[in-house]
Design a protein around this nucleic acid. Structure first.
Lengths: 215, 215
DNA sequence: TAGATTGTTAATCGATTAACAATC
DNA sequence: TAGATTGTTAATCGATTAACAATC
Protein backbone atom coordinates (compact mmCIF):
# COMPACT_ATOMS: atom_id res chain seq x y z
CA UNK A 1 0.00 0.00 0.00
CA UNK A 2 1.51 3.33 -0.96
CA UNK A 3 1.41 6.18 1.49
CA UNK A 4 -0.11 9.00 -0.53
CA UNK A 5 -3.18 10.45 1.10
CA UNK A 6 -6.43 8.78 0.12
CA UNK A 7 -9.21 11.30 -0.35
CA UNK A 8 -12.32 11.05 1.77
CA UNK A 9 -14.41 10.85 -1.41
CA UNK A 10 -12.73 7.55 -2.21
CA UNK A 11 -13.13 6.20 1.33
CA UNK A 12 -16.83 6.94 1.29
CA UNK A 13 -17.29 4.89 -1.85
CA UNK A 14 -15.61 1.80 -0.40
CA UNK A 15 -18.61 0.53 1.59
CA UNK A 16 -20.67 0.81 -1.56
CA UNK A 17 -18.20 -1.28 -3.56
CA UNK A 18 -18.23 -3.76 -0.73
CA UNK A 19 -22.01 -4.04 -0.85
CA UNK A 20 -22.10 -4.54 -4.60
CA UNK A 21 -19.38 -7.16 -4.47
CA UNK A 22 -21.28 -8.96 -1.76
CA UNK A 23 -24.36 -8.98 -3.99
CA UNK A 24 -22.31 -10.38 -6.88
CA UNK A 25 -20.90 -13.11 -4.63
CA UNK A 26 -24.39 -14.07 -3.55
CA UNK A 27 -25.62 -14.50 -7.08
CA UNK A 28 -22.54 -16.57 -7.87
CA UNK A 29 -20.61 -14.20 -10.12
CA UNK A 30 -16.91 -15.01 -9.92
CA UNK A 31 -15.25 -12.27 -11.94
CA UNK A 32 -16.18 -8.79 -13.05
CA UNK A 33 -14.65 -6.07 -15.19
CA UNK A 34 -14.63 -2.44 -14.17
CA UNK A 35 -16.90 -1.85 -17.17
CA UNK A 36 -19.55 -4.30 -16.00
CA UNK A 37 -19.40 -3.08 -12.42
CA UNK A 38 -19.65 0.52 -13.60
CA UNK A 39 -22.91 -0.26 -15.36
CA UNK A 40 -24.36 -1.92 -12.28
CA UNK A 41 -23.30 0.87 -9.95
CA UNK A 42 -24.00 3.81 -12.20
CA UNK A 43 -20.50 5.26 -12.02
CA UNK A 44 -17.66 5.29 -14.56
CA UNK A 45 -15.27 2.40 -15.05
CA UNK A 46 -12.45 4.92 -14.84
CA UNK A 47 -13.50 5.91 -11.36
CA UNK A 48 -13.62 2.32 -10.20
CA UNK A 49 -10.12 1.63 -11.48
CA UNK A 50 -8.78 4.85 -10.03
CA UNK A 51 -10.37 4.15 -6.67
CA UNK A 52 -9.09 0.61 -6.42
CA UNK A 53 -5.60 1.59 -7.52
CA UNK A 54 -5.31 3.87 -4.51
CA UNK A 55 -4.85 0.69 -2.52
CA UNK A 56 -3.16 -1.64 -4.95
CA UNK A 57 -3.54 -3.47 -8.25
CA UNK A 58 -6.29 -5.93 -7.47
CA UNK A 59 -7.18 -6.72 -11.07
CA UNK A 60 -5.64 -8.51 -13.97
CA UNK A 61 -5.39 -7.22 -17.51
CA UNK A 62 -7.66 -9.01 -19.91
CA UNK A 63 -9.57 -10.65 -17.08
CA UNK A 64 -10.94 -8.07 -14.71
CA UNK A 65 -11.32 -8.53 -10.98
CA UNK A 66 -11.94 -11.66 -8.99
CA UNK A 67 -15.10 -10.85 -7.06
CA UNK A 68 -14.30 -12.76 -3.92
CA UNK A 69 -10.75 -11.55 -3.53
CA UNK A 70 -11.72 -7.96 -4.29
CA UNK A 71 -14.51 -8.23 -1.73
CA UNK A 72 -12.00 -9.43 0.84
CA UNK A 73 -9.45 -6.80 -0.07
CA UNK A 74 -11.95 -3.99 0.42
CA UNK A 75 -13.10 -5.58 3.64
CA UNK A 76 -9.50 -5.57 4.86
CA UNK A 77 -8.98 -1.96 3.86
CA UNK A 78 -12.08 -1.00 5.83
CA UNK A 79 -10.97 -3.07 8.80
CA UNK A 80 -13.89 -5.49 8.71
CA UNK A 81 -11.69 -8.35 9.83
CA UNK A 82 -10.80 -6.40 12.96
CA UNK A 83 -13.20 -6.10 15.87
CA UNK A 84 -14.16 -2.65 17.08
CA UNK A 85 -15.64 -2.60 20.55
CA UNK A 86 -18.45 -0.10 20.90
CA UNK A 87 -20.74 1.24 23.57
CA UNK A 88 -24.07 2.94 23.12
CA UNK A 89 -24.73 6.00 25.22
CA UNK A 90 -28.42 6.80 25.39
CA UNK A 91 -30.79 3.82 25.28
CA UNK A 92 -33.82 5.63 23.91
CA UNK A 93 -35.42 4.60 20.66
CA UNK A 94 -32.38 5.37 18.56
CA UNK A 95 -29.96 3.69 20.93
CA UNK A 96 -32.12 0.58 21.01
CA UNK A 97 -32.40 0.61 17.24
CA UNK A 98 -28.61 0.62 16.99
CA UNK A 99 -28.27 -2.11 19.61
CA UNK A 100 -30.59 -4.32 17.60
CA UNK A 101 -29.10 -3.58 14.22
CA UNK A 102 -27.63 -6.94 13.27
CA UNK A 103 -25.51 -5.73 10.39
CA UNK A 104 -22.96 -4.02 12.60
CA UNK A 105 -21.64 -7.25 14.05
CA UNK A 106 -21.18 -8.63 10.54
CA UNK A 107 -18.92 -5.69 9.83
CA UNK A 108 -16.78 -6.10 12.91
CA UNK A 109 -18.53 -3.78 15.34
CA UNK A 110 -19.43 -5.35 18.65
CA UNK A 111 -21.65 -3.63 21.21
CA UNK A 112 -20.29 -4.38 24.66
CA UNK A 113 -22.10 -1.81 26.78
CA UNK A 114 -25.21 0.36 26.87
CA UNK A 115 -25.64 3.37 29.14
CA UNK A 116 -28.47 5.66 30.11
CA UNK A 117 -29.38 8.08 32.88
CA UNK A 118 -33.09 7.25 33.05
CA UNK A 119 -33.85 5.04 36.10
CA UNK A 120 -36.74 3.44 34.18
CA UNK A 121 -34.33 2.17 31.56
CA UNK A 122 -31.29 1.34 33.69
CA UNK A 123 -31.30 -2.37 34.48
CA UNK A 124 -33.31 -3.32 31.43
CA UNK A 125 -31.70 -5.85 29.11
CA UNK A 126 -31.22 -5.09 25.44
CA UNK A 127 -29.71 -7.78 23.23
CA UNK A 128 -28.39 -9.56 26.31
CA UNK A 129 -26.70 -6.43 27.56
CA UNK A 130 -27.82 -4.79 30.78
CA UNK A 131 -28.30 -1.06 30.49
CA UNK A 132 -25.95 0.57 33.00
CA UNK A 133 -26.19 3.88 34.77
CA UNK A 134 -24.22 6.50 32.89
CA UNK A 135 -22.47 7.15 36.22
CA UNK A 136 -20.71 3.84 35.74
CA UNK A 137 -19.19 4.85 32.42
CA UNK A 138 -15.78 5.77 33.85
CA UNK A 139 -15.49 2.48 35.66
CA UNK A 140 -16.59 0.53 32.60
CA UNK A 141 -14.09 2.21 30.33
CA UNK A 142 -11.22 1.53 32.71
CA UNK A 143 -12.11 -2.16 32.82
CA UNK A 144 -12.90 -2.70 29.13
CA UNK A 145 -11.50 -1.85 25.74
CA UNK A 146 -13.83 0.67 24.14
CA UNK A 147 -13.01 1.88 20.63
CA UNK A 148 -16.22 3.66 19.73
CA UNK A 149 -18.99 5.46 21.57
CA UNK A 150 -22.30 5.73 19.77
CA UNK A 151 -24.01 8.87 21.03
CA UNK A 152 -27.80 8.82 21.02
CA UNK A 153 -28.55 11.23 23.84
CA UNK A 154 -30.78 14.30 23.75
CA UNK A 155 -29.41 17.43 22.15
CA UNK A 156 -28.97 19.28 25.45
CA UNK A 157 -26.54 16.80 26.97
CA UNK A 158 -24.67 15.79 23.82
CA UNK A 159 -21.84 18.28 24.17
CA UNK A 160 -21.05 17.39 27.77
CA UNK A 161 -21.21 13.65 27.15
CA UNK A 162 -19.04 13.96 24.06
CA UNK A 163 -16.55 15.82 26.17
CA UNK A 164 -16.59 13.06 28.73
CA UNK A 165 -16.06 10.45 26.02
CA UNK A 166 -13.00 12.37 24.87
CA UNK A 167 -11.67 12.69 28.41
CA UNK A 168 -12.00 8.95 28.93
CA UNK A 169 -9.78 8.36 25.92
CA UNK A 170 -12.32 6.75 23.62
CA UNK A 171 -11.00 7.31 20.13
CA UNK A 172 -14.10 7.13 17.94
CA UNK A 173 -17.41 8.90 18.26
CA UNK A 174 -20.51 8.20 16.21
CA UNK A 175 -22.77 11.15 16.77
CA UNK A 176 -26.52 11.19 16.17
CA UNK A 177 -27.25 14.64 17.54
CA UNK A 178 -27.88 17.47 15.08
CA UNK A 179 -24.80 19.32 16.22
CA UNK A 180 -21.18 19.69 15.21
CA UNK A 181 -19.13 18.45 18.10
CA UNK A 182 -16.10 20.44 19.08
CA UNK A 183 -14.12 18.65 21.73
CA UNK A 184 -10.58 19.35 22.78
CA UNK A 185 -9.51 15.74 22.53
CA UNK A 186 -8.03 13.58 19.86
CA UNK A 187 -11.27 11.87 18.84
CA UNK A 188 -12.48 10.92 15.38
CA UNK A 189 -16.09 12.00 14.99
CA UNK A 190 -18.47 10.67 12.38
CA UNK A 191 -21.84 12.39 12.27
CA UNK A 192 -25.23 11.05 11.27
CA UNK A 193 -27.29 14.18 10.92
CA UNK A 194 -30.71 12.71 10.22
CA UNK A 195 -32.56 15.98 9.98
CA UNK A 196 -29.94 17.35 7.58
CA UNK A 197 -30.55 14.40 5.32
CA UNK A 198 -34.30 14.85 5.55
CA UNK A 199 -33.99 18.55 4.75
CA UNK A 200 -32.03 17.74 1.63
CA UNK A 201 -34.85 15.42 0.61
CA UNK A 202 -37.32 18.22 1.27
CA UNK A 203 -35.29 20.61 -0.86
CA UNK A 204 -35.18 18.18 -3.76
CA UNK A 205 -38.92 17.55 -3.55
CA UNK A 206 -39.62 21.25 -3.60
CA UNK A 207 -37.32 21.80 -6.53
CA UNK A 208 -38.91 18.99 -8.48
CA UNK A 209 -42.34 20.38 -7.71
CA UNK A 210 -41.34 23.87 -8.88
CA UNK A 211 -39.79 22.48 -12.04
CA UNK A 212 -42.93 20.55 -12.89
CA UNK A 213 -45.16 23.53 -12.22
CA UNK A 214 -43.17 25.53 -14.75
CA UNK A 215 -43.74 23.00 -17.55
CA UNK B 1 -33.62 33.48 -7.67
CA UNK B 2 -31.65 32.73 -10.80
CA UNK B 3 -32.13 29.45 -12.57
CA UNK B 4 -28.60 28.11 -12.88
CA UNK B 5 -28.20 24.66 -11.39
CA UNK B 6 -27.26 24.61 -7.73
CA UNK B 7 -24.74 21.92 -6.95
CA UNK B 8 -25.59 19.22 -4.45
CA UNK B 9 -22.50 20.16 -2.44
CA UNK B 10 -24.09 23.55 -1.77
CA UNK B 11 -27.49 22.06 -0.89
CA UNK B 12 -25.93 19.73 1.62
CA UNK B 13 -24.32 22.63 3.43
CA UNK B 14 -27.58 24.55 3.83
CA UNK B 15 -28.90 22.61 6.84
CA UNK B 16 -25.60 23.25 8.53
CA UNK B 17 -25.83 27.01 7.95
CA UNK B 18 -29.37 26.83 9.24
CA UNK B 19 -28.22 25.16 12.44
CA UNK B 20 -25.46 27.66 13.07
CA UNK B 21 -27.75 30.61 12.43
CA UNK B 22 -30.25 29.12 14.83
CA UNK B 23 -27.51 28.90 17.48
CA UNK B 24 -26.58 32.55 16.85
CA UNK B 25 -30.21 33.61 17.18
CA UNK B 26 -30.47 31.78 20.47
CA UNK B 27 -27.49 33.52 21.96
CA UNK B 28 -28.89 36.85 20.78
CA UNK B 29 -26.47 37.72 17.98
CA UNK B 30 -28.20 39.96 15.48
CA UNK B 31 -25.70 40.33 12.66
CA UNK B 32 -22.74 38.36 11.43
CA UNK B 33 -20.09 38.73 8.74
CA UNK B 34 -19.05 35.88 6.50
CA UNK B 35 -15.65 36.15 8.17
CA UNK B 36 -17.01 35.61 11.67
CA UNK B 37 -19.29 32.80 10.59
CA UNK B 38 -16.44 31.14 8.74
CA UNK B 39 -14.41 31.01 11.94
CA UNK B 40 -17.29 29.47 13.87
CA UNK B 41 -18.05 26.89 11.20
CA UNK B 42 -14.52 26.07 10.18
CA UNK B 43 -15.00 26.82 6.49
CA UNK B 44 -13.83 29.78 4.38
CA UNK B 45 -15.67 33.09 4.21
CA UNK B 46 -15.41 32.83 0.45
CA UNK B 47 -17.35 29.63 0.44
CA UNK B 48 -20.09 31.09 2.60
CA UNK B 49 -20.50 34.07 0.28
CA UNK B 50 -20.42 31.88 -2.81
CA UNK B 51 -22.98 29.49 -1.35
CA UNK B 52 -25.41 32.21 -0.29
CA UNK B 53 -25.10 34.01 -3.59
CA UNK B 54 -26.42 30.97 -5.38
CA UNK B 55 -29.79 32.00 -4.00
CA UNK B 56 -29.55 35.76 -3.84
CA UNK B 57 -27.75 38.64 -2.21
CA UNK B 58 -28.79 38.30 1.39
CA UNK B 59 -26.04 40.47 2.82
CA UNK B 60 -25.15 44.11 2.87
CA UNK B 61 -21.72 45.55 2.13
CA UNK B 62 -20.01 46.93 5.19
CA UNK B 63 -22.55 45.30 7.48
CA UNK B 64 -22.67 41.57 6.91
CA UNK B 65 -25.76 39.44 7.22
CA UNK B 66 -28.77 39.88 9.45
CA UNK B 67 -28.90 36.62 11.36
CA UNK B 68 -32.66 36.34 11.64
CA UNK B 69 -33.44 37.16 8.05
CA UNK B 70 -30.69 34.89 6.73
CA UNK B 71 -32.01 32.13 8.97
CA UNK B 72 -35.46 32.61 7.50
CA UNK B 73 -34.18 32.81 3.93
CA UNK B 74 -32.36 29.51 4.25
CA UNK B 75 -35.40 28.00 5.91
CA UNK B 76 -37.47 29.09 2.93
CA UNK B 77 -34.97 27.72 0.44
CA UNK B 78 -35.10 24.37 2.21
CA UNK B 79 -38.89 24.45 2.35
CA UNK B 80 -39.15 24.50 6.13
CA UNK B 81 -42.19 26.73 6.00
CA UNK B 82 -43.99 24.13 3.92
CA UNK B 83 -45.42 21.00 5.46
CA UNK B 84 -44.34 17.65 4.09
CA UNK B 85 -46.61 14.78 5.04
CA UNK B 86 -44.74 11.60 5.76
CA UNK B 87 -45.48 8.00 6.62
CA UNK B 88 -43.20 5.50 8.31
CA UNK B 89 -43.12 2.02 6.88
CA UNK B 90 -41.71 -0.46 9.35
CA UNK B 91 -42.39 0.23 13.03
CA UNK B 92 -39.42 -1.62 14.47
CA UNK B 93 -36.86 0.14 16.58
CA UNK B 94 -35.71 2.46 13.84
CA UNK B 95 -39.24 3.34 12.73
CA UNK B 96 -40.21 4.11 16.31
CA UNK B 97 -37.09 6.20 16.77
CA UNK B 98 -38.07 8.28 13.75
CA UNK B 99 -41.67 8.59 14.93
CA UNK B 100 -40.47 9.96 18.24
CA UNK B 101 -37.83 12.27 16.83
CA UNK B 102 -39.26 15.67 17.70
CA UNK B 103 -36.99 17.71 15.49
CA UNK B 104 -38.68 16.65 12.28
CA UNK B 105 -41.90 18.46 13.04
CA UNK B 106 -39.95 21.65 13.74
CA UNK B 107 -38.58 21.39 10.23
CA UNK B 108 -41.92 20.93 8.55
CA UNK B 109 -42.14 17.16 8.40
CA UNK B 110 -45.31 15.69 9.84
CA UNK B 111 -45.79 11.97 10.39
CA UNK B 112 -49.36 11.04 9.53
CA UNK B 113 -49.18 7.27 9.30
CA UNK B 114 -47.17 4.30 10.51
CA UNK B 115 -47.31 0.85 8.90
CA UNK B 116 -46.04 -2.59 9.73
CA UNK B 117 -46.73 -6.19 8.83
CA UNK B 118 -46.15 -7.69 12.27
CA UNK B 119 -49.48 -8.52 13.99
CA UNK B 120 -47.86 -7.87 17.38
CA UNK B 121 -47.17 -4.28 16.39
CA UNK B 122 -50.24 -3.49 14.31
CA UNK B 123 -52.75 -1.65 16.47
CA UNK B 124 -50.17 -0.28 18.87
CA UNK B 125 -50.11 3.49 19.24
CA UNK B 126 -46.93 5.44 18.66
CA UNK B 127 -47.02 9.19 19.22
CA UNK B 128 -50.81 9.14 18.99
CA UNK B 129 -50.73 7.32 15.69
CA UNK B 130 -52.13 3.83 15.39
CA UNK B 131 -49.83 1.45 13.56
CA UNK B 132 -51.74 0.15 10.55
CA UNK B 133 -51.39 -3.09 8.65
CA UNK B 134 -49.14 -2.57 5.64
CA UNK B 135 -52.02 -4.07 3.62
CA UNK B 136 -53.90 -0.83 4.21
CA UNK B 137 -51.19 1.29 2.62
CA UNK B 138 -52.92 1.61 -0.75
CA UNK B 139 -56.14 2.74 0.84
CA UNK B 140 -54.35 5.21 3.11
CA UNK B 141 -52.44 6.78 0.25
CA UNK B 142 -55.60 7.26 -1.82
CA UNK B 143 -57.30 9.02 1.09
CA UNK B 144 -54.38 11.15 2.30
CA UNK B 145 -51.67 13.35 0.91
CA UNK B 146 -48.36 11.56 1.40
CA UNK B 147 -45.20 13.30 0.27
CA UNK B 148 -42.56 11.10 1.82
CA UNK B 149 -42.26 7.48 2.85
CA UNK B 150 -39.65 6.68 5.46
CA UNK B 151 -38.53 3.13 4.87
CA UNK B 152 -37.35 1.21 7.93
CA UNK B 153 -38.15 -2.33 6.91
CA UNK B 154 -35.81 -5.34 6.88
CA UNK B 155 -33.35 -5.63 4.03
CA UNK B 156 -35.18 -8.51 2.35
CA UNK B 157 -38.42 -6.63 1.78
CA UNK B 158 -37.00 -3.17 1.11
CA UNK B 159 -36.89 -3.49 -2.67
CA UNK B 160 -40.48 -4.66 -3.03
CA UNK B 161 -41.85 -2.05 -0.62
CA UNK B 162 -39.88 0.70 -2.33
CA UNK B 163 -41.39 -0.45 -5.59
CA UNK B 164 -44.85 -0.27 -4.09
CA UNK B 165 -44.16 3.23 -2.77
CA UNK B 166 -43.21 4.29 -6.27
CA UNK B 167 -46.29 2.67 -7.78
CA UNK B 168 -48.53 4.51 -5.34
CA UNK B 169 -47.13 7.80 -6.54
CA UNK B 170 -45.30 8.87 -3.38
CA UNK B 171 -42.63 11.27 -4.55
CA UNK B 172 -40.01 11.10 -1.80
CA UNK B 173 -38.35 8.12 -0.23
CA UNK B 174 -36.09 8.18 2.80
CA UNK B 175 -34.31 4.87 2.82
CA UNK B 176 -32.63 3.30 5.85
CA UNK B 177 -31.77 -0.03 4.26
CA UNK B 178 -28.16 -0.65 3.27
CA UNK B 179 -29.06 -0.91 -0.38
CA UNK B 180 -29.19 1.33 -3.42
CA UNK B 181 -32.79 1.42 -4.53
CA UNK B 182 -33.50 1.16 -8.21
CA UNK B 183 -37.14 1.70 -8.89
CA UNK B 184 -38.72 2.45 -12.23
CA UNK B 185 -40.71 5.38 -10.93
CA UNK B 186 -40.15 9.06 -10.63
CA UNK B 187 -39.18 9.07 -6.95
CA UNK B 188 -36.52 11.10 -5.18
CA UNK B 189 -34.54 8.82 -2.92
CA UNK B 190 -32.39 9.98 -0.04
CA UNK B 191 -30.37 7.27 1.63
CA UNK B 192 -29.20 6.95 5.22
CA UNK B 193 -26.69 4.16 5.04
CA UNK B 194 -25.82 3.74 8.71
CA UNK B 195 -23.38 0.90 8.25
CA UNK B 196 -21.56 2.82 5.51
CA UNK B 197 -21.08 5.69 7.91
CA UNK B 198 -19.87 3.36 10.64
CA UNK B 199 -17.43 1.70 8.24
CA UNK B 200 -15.95 5.06 7.36
CA UNK B 201 -15.43 5.67 11.07
CA UNK B 202 -13.78 2.25 11.33
CA UNK B 203 -11.47 3.08 8.44
CA UNK B 204 -10.42 6.36 9.99
CA UNK B 205 -9.75 4.73 13.35
CA UNK B 206 -7.59 2.11 11.69
CA UNK B 207 -5.69 4.68 9.73
CA UNK B 208 -5.06 6.76 12.81
CA UNK B 209 -3.91 3.68 14.67
CA UNK B 210 -1.49 2.73 11.89
CA UNK B 211 -0.16 6.26 11.69
CA UNK B 212 0.50 6.35 15.41
CA UNK B 213 2.17 2.96 15.37
CA UNK B 214 4.60 4.23 12.74
CA UNK B 215 5.73 7.16 14.87
C1' DT C 1 -1.24 -14.70 -31.05
C1' DA C 2 -5.47 -11.66 -30.72
C1' DG C 3 -8.72 -9.71 -27.68
C1' DA C 4 -9.79 -7.91 -23.45
C1' DT C 5 -9.08 -5.16 -19.73
C1' DT C 6 -6.14 -3.32 -16.41
C1' DG C 7 -3.01 0.38 -14.35
C1' DT C 8 -1.69 4.88 -15.06
C1' DT C 9 -0.91 9.27 -17.26
C1' DA C 10 -3.08 13.23 -19.30
C1' DA C 11 -7.19 16.13 -20.07
C1' DT C 12 -11.32 17.92 -18.39
C1' DC C 13 -14.49 19.40 -15.32
C1' DG C 14 -16.28 21.32 -11.17
C1' DA C 15 -15.70 23.07 -6.63
C1' DT C 16 -13.09 25.87 -3.54
C1' DT C 17 -10.32 29.79 -2.54
C1' DA C 18 -8.37 34.34 -3.49
C1' DA C 19 -8.76 38.90 -4.96
C1' DC C 20 -10.91 43.13 -5.54
C1' DA C 21 -14.19 46.55 -7.29
C1' DA C 22 -18.73 47.92 -5.76
C1' DT C 23 -21.25 49.82 -2.16
C1' DC C 24 -23.32 50.17 2.32
C1' DT D 1 -16.12 60.38 4.20
C1' DA D 2 -13.46 56.16 5.76
C1' DG D 3 -13.85 51.51 6.99
C1' DA D 4 -15.98 47.29 6.49
C1' DT D 5 -17.75 43.73 4.02
C1' DT D 6 -20.34 42.11 0.37
C1' DG D 7 -21.06 40.17 -4.48
C1' DT D 8 -18.59 38.49 -8.17
C1' DT D 9 -14.83 37.47 -11.26
C1' DA D 10 -10.46 35.11 -11.71
C1' DA D 11 -7.10 31.67 -10.08
C1' DT D 12 -6.26 27.45 -7.95
C1' DC D 13 -6.99 23.08 -6.49
C1' DG D 14 -8.77 18.51 -6.50
C1' DA D 15 -11.68 15.02 -8.32
C1' DT D 16 -13.54 12.77 -12.28
C1' DT D 17 -13.18 11.17 -16.89
C1' DA D 18 -10.72 9.91 -21.10
C1' DA D 19 -7.06 7.76 -23.40
C1' DC D 20 -3.78 4.39 -24.17
C1' DA D 21 0.38 1.61 -23.44
C1' DA D 22 1.22 -2.49 -20.73
C1' DT D 23 0.07 -7.11 -20.16
C1' DC D 24 -2.67 -11.07 -19.04
Amino acid sequence: MNSKKISIAVIKRLPRYHRYLNDLLEIGIKRISSKELSIRMGITASQIRQDLNCFGGFGQQGYGYNVESLYNEIGNIMGINKTFYAIIIGAGNMGQALANYVNFEKRGFKIIGIFDSNPDIIGKTIKNIEVLDIEKLDEFVSNNTVDIAMLCVPYEVTASIADKVGRLGIKGLWNFSPMDLKIPYDVIVENVHLSDSLMVLGYKLNEKFNREKKN
